[in-house]
């Protein structure tokens, strides 16, 4: 946006298999969010190639990008990004609206996904009536409702206390156990340890890419 261009990412090369749970770590300014935004087609790389499920992603129009996001990607944000005048159920049903799923089916599916994150009874509540952890679980339900190929989570626990963080990570691990591919951006080492693979970024380059022994979050959750 600014007049001075700044190279944030300088030669990133990695691939991710189906069913992986990857943590992207790094201090602030290391380019981890930029990487996630490029993967999420919210931003575009100046150069380089990006292939998602053997589809080359480049020169996207806004319309095309919207289609791909709707079909391939689910997002979980640090600040939840729920629509504040819609109930939990309507928020979860929103991506299905853009997939042209009929209203009735949408609502059933939304309830089903809310049930999976344990918030079925909160379906009619507005986001303002939910706690931070509950909001993030609604956001995860929303991201999963569209049945994306990849779930992208940008600091999903950044706005939560550690207990709630572990609950959210437990949920993410369970979704991963069902075979979903998940990328998590975080700067918290304990969150990264709950993933299966950790990529360290520093000043826009990958300094470390290793498989880790997954720490189950369930043990911290009573």
């Amino acid at each position: 946006m600014g007049s001075n261009s700044l190279h944030v990412l300088k030669g990133i090369n990695f691939s991710c298999e189906s069913g992986e749970l990857v943590a992207i770590m790094g201090s602030s300014g290391s380019g981890k969010s930029t990487l996630l935004n490029i993967l999420g087609m919210l931003d575009e790389a100046d150069s380089g190639e990006y292939t998602l499920d053997s589809v080359p992603i480049k020169n996207l129009t806004e319309t095309k990008a919207a289609q791909y996001r709707n079909k391939f990607l689910g997002f979980v944000f640090q600040s939840f990004n729920l629509i504040n005048y819609k109930s939990a159920m309507e928020n979860v049903a929103l991506p299905l609206y853009y997939q042209r799923v009929p209203r009735k089916e949408r609502q059933e599916k939304a309830i089903e996904y809310l049930d999976r994150v344990g918030l079925k009874e909160w379906a009619t509540h507005l986001p303002s009536e939910l706690s931070g952890g509950q909001k993030q679980r609604v956001a995860i339900a929303r991201a999963m409702a569209a049945e994306p190929k990849v779930l992208l989570a940008d600091e999903p626990t950044g706005a939560l206390d550690s207990k709630t963080s572990y609950e959210v990570m437990d949920l993410i691990q369970k979704i991963n156990d069902e075979g979903n591919t998940i990328l998590v951006v975080t700067h918290e080492p304990d969150i990264a340890e709950m993933c299966k693979r950790v990529i360290h970024l520093k000043d826009g380059v990958i300094v470390e890419d290793k498989k880790v022994e997954q720490v189950r979050a369930a043990q911290y959750v009573q």
């Binding site: 919210l42 806004e62 289609q67 079909k71 997002f75 729920l82 997939q99 569209a146």
Partner: peptide, 16 residues
């Protein structure tokens, strides 16, 4: 604006 951003992230096309 923010709602529009959310809708777009969830797959809304600009024209919609």
């Amino acid at each position: 604006t923010r709602e529009i951003g959310i809708r777009k992230a969830l797959g809304a096309k600009p024209w919609s």
